[in-house]
Amino acid sequence: MHKYIIKRILMLIPVTIGVSLLVFVMLDLAPGTVVDIIGGEMTTEEIAELNHELGYDRSVFYRYFIYMKGLLHGDLGTSYIYKVDVWKLYMQRLPATLQLAGASVFLAIVLSIPLGIKAATKHGGVTDNLSMVAALLGLSMPNFWLGMMLIVLFSNQLGWLPSYGATDGFKSLILPAFTIGTGLMATLTRTTRSSMLDVLRADYLRTARSKGVPEKKVVKKHALKNALIPIITIIGTQLGNAVGGAVVTENVFAWPGVGRLIIDAINQRDTNTVTGCIIMTTVMICIIQVVVDVVYAFVDPRLRAQYASAKTRKKPEKVQGGAAA
């Protein structure tokens, strides 16, 4: 398991190189540079000087090499627009992004898994149909519209919750988390339901029931554990997406998250900020995936056994190699 985790972490190196190169090349292909944004009132000479200072008079690969050299020393560069260290900039925005991602996923887990289970166990009944209609609604509603409606109701009409920003602590979190969480809830409810339906029809559960195991125990102890793998996969993916920034929701609620920062930086061709933030987001997503893999092992004994057998298989190989030598 440890080796697996280390291997996954080492995979970050080629991923980071690939992602950063892609960002550099794509921003280079887009018309205009940050100099065009900040140099509106400059003379041609001043622009040439600034281009030279920022390396825009050299090739994209040269700039990329310089950036990566800095990255090896832990330097994500300095934002051309904000004149702030990108690491600082990212860390200023990360807490808000994590809060929002965590809250929306938590909300989805707490509400959708029980609902999905209920829908599966009452398959074809009122609960099932209602939950599926609700899930369809959740999937169909665009986030910007839902966010606006929530603001109109809870901020403007009732005055209970703030309409923007992250300064009111938990209260600030509720509306944006619910907005993002709605789509996620819908996906998760449907996944839980279908996964549970598959498992509930399995032979071993029929056996358990015939042996007189109570239905509650059948569902909770035997069925749910086996149905969790696809659910965890969805949670992991959605958490990864949310950590990357929910741009639309962040925009509606003026949420000071990473997504909005990246979009604004792209519009302003702030290559250092875009690259630095995307590298950090990549790292975060990789970490989440490793955590998801670890959770798989805890949930599914078959995977645990796979990791263990991989470990034991390695040892005799070494002995054999030694004998051959």
């Binding site: 887009a30 018309p31 205009g32 065009d36 519009n267 061709r269």
Partner: peptide, 8 residues
């Protein structure tokens, strides 16, 4: 184009 594109 976008704003950076038009400036460029």
């Amino acid at each position: 184009v976008d704003s950076a594109g038009i400036s460029a």
